[in-house]
Every structure is written in C-alpha cells, then in structure tokens.
Amino acid sequence: MIEIKDVTKIYTSKNRQVIGVDHVSLTIQAGEIFGVIGYSGAGKSTLLRCLNLLERPTSGQIMIDGVDLTSLNSEQLRQARLKIGMIFQHFYLVSSKTVFENIAFALKAANKPKEEIEKRVNELLDIVGLSDKRDAYPAQLSGGQKQRVGIARALANDPNVLLCDEATSALDPSTTKSILTLLKKINRELGITIVLITHEMEVVKDICDRVAVMQNGKIIELGTVYELFTNPKEELTKSFINSILQFEIPEHLLQKRTGTMVKILFKGESAEEAIVSDMLQTFKVKGNILHGKIEYIQNIPLGVFIMELTGERKEVERALDYISERTNGLEVIAHAA
C-alpha cells in the first residue's frame, strides 16, 4: 500500500518558484492499477517521481508498506528502490549494453550472484517475450521491444510496485495495446501494484482500476474508472472522457435533421436496445440511430447512442422522460427544427 501524505514539490530556480505537486494526499491499494491522468505540465511525472524519491518532496511523506521513504538514509533508500520498479516513456536503456546486460544491471544492484543473475534474466526475458533478443543492443530493437526490456529490468528484483511514466506514449496504438496487456498480466499474475501516469484516457480505460485526474499540481477528481466515465464531475474529466466517447456527426446530417437529436448513455446492465425499442413502441415517435458505440470499461458495458426522434412535440417529450428515467444520461443535442 502506498500512502502519499500531503506531498508538495516546489521547484526553485533563480527567481521563480514552480509548483510541481500541490498538497496531494492519496492512498493506493496493494494490487490495484492506479492511473493518474492530466495534460502536460499537470505535475504527473513529478508526483510519480516522488514515489521513489527521484524527486524529494518539499514537504509531506511517502509511505510504502508502512515505511516512510523520506526518512530513510541513502543506503536504506537504495534498498527500498530495489523493490520499486520504474519504466519510462523513452525507456532509458543503457545503449552500450545488450538486453541481457541491461536487465542484469538491476540484479547486480541487489548483489545477486552470477549464476542467479543468468537464470533470472532468462526468466524475465521469457515473461516479457524477448528471449530471442538476449544479445541485441537497444538500437536494434523497436520501441515496443525496448519498453519490454525496460519492464524486465523493472521487474528484476521482484518489486511490489511498478511506476510507469507515460510508458506507452511513445508507442503506436497496436504496440501500446500489447504493452498494456503485458502490464495487466504482470499486475494480475505477479500481484504487483501499478501506478501509471498518462495523458491518454484510452490507457486508463483499458487497464486502470482507479484513476485520479490531475491539474495544476492538484488531484481534482478521484474514483474508479467506471465512476469517472459514467459520472464525471469536473470539466477536465469530462473532456478526457469525451476524447473517447466523442462522436462527430457529419455536418450534412445535422443540416438535414428535422427531429430532436439526443445522446443517450447506457450504463452497466441496462438492456440498451430493449429500452429504445420499448420507447418506440410506447410512444408515437420515430427513432433513427445516427451513431452508436459500446465501450467496455472494467468489463462493464457503457453504451452511447445518438438518435434523432421525430413526432409530435408532446410525444417526443414524453419519450424523452421515459428514456431519462431508465437510463443514466440523456442529453438533448439539438431540438426539433
């Protein structure tokens, strides 16, 4: 369990002070995948780097499994870091060393004997699926492969925690998926707590259990990913969610439209089609689905439909009330012309 207690990080340069992290308190449960999302400059990296004291907080404490990292001396801190893995957007492998040597480096830090290092590196290469690249140099690897080496290095000493600083932001979408799948596997099979930061809601949606939204060094919203998707409070959260649930209705359709345009959100188990077809049977309205999409967030479906309803105004209004009662979100995009 990681407890961040009232952590503030202020950077002081010649004549200016920049606040990186502003009084953040958070508890991250053992075994969860915790995401922090925010735009560039929000303070995500600073917060993450405070967790292994790559950045020393100006004030506040970082407790990992009950130990206050800020109170450790440098040797104790080094020992603690053996149990906190970290991966980076730009991988940061030692370019003059082979894949094997890069991973072995972490084991050397833990003073492991040679034979054990040999055995463990092979094991790790197997976990990340890179056994055939053992003697390659980083320059000979693709981005996804480099990140796999980074992950193997981070996992070398059986850490309890894995910190991921925009680990997929430099990768293409399909490689991103494969790295996220690997992270999820590591979390589920090895029981490692993962803290990841990202500016992409897609990443959060795919693997996080809980997420914190960060802005100007502060956590402005926090909850399970599903809660945030279905019931966002802050504008920033909404804008991140819209980046996924966004539908662009072609202009000519909007022009041609005669009825009322609505966006309907179905959450969880509400049988989406049934409600719509019931509505169409009960009221004298015609419905025309312009766009529809079901996202699975933490394996719970979240459906979004954009419909155009035509009919008498009274009937349309009653139909809307009906839907509004039975679904979790109804938004009228445009009223009847």
Binding site: R78, R81, Y92, S95, F105, A106, A109
Partner: peptide, 15 residues
Amino acid sequence: GVIEAAIAVGATPWM
C-alpha cells in the same frame, strides 16, 4: 534519464 533509470533501479554510485 538513463542515469535516473539506474538510480531508480537501486544501483550504487559506483555501479
């Protein structure tokens, strides 16, 4: 970043 990655891994200054 490469130096920081080594620090994060728990390496000694000499390493």
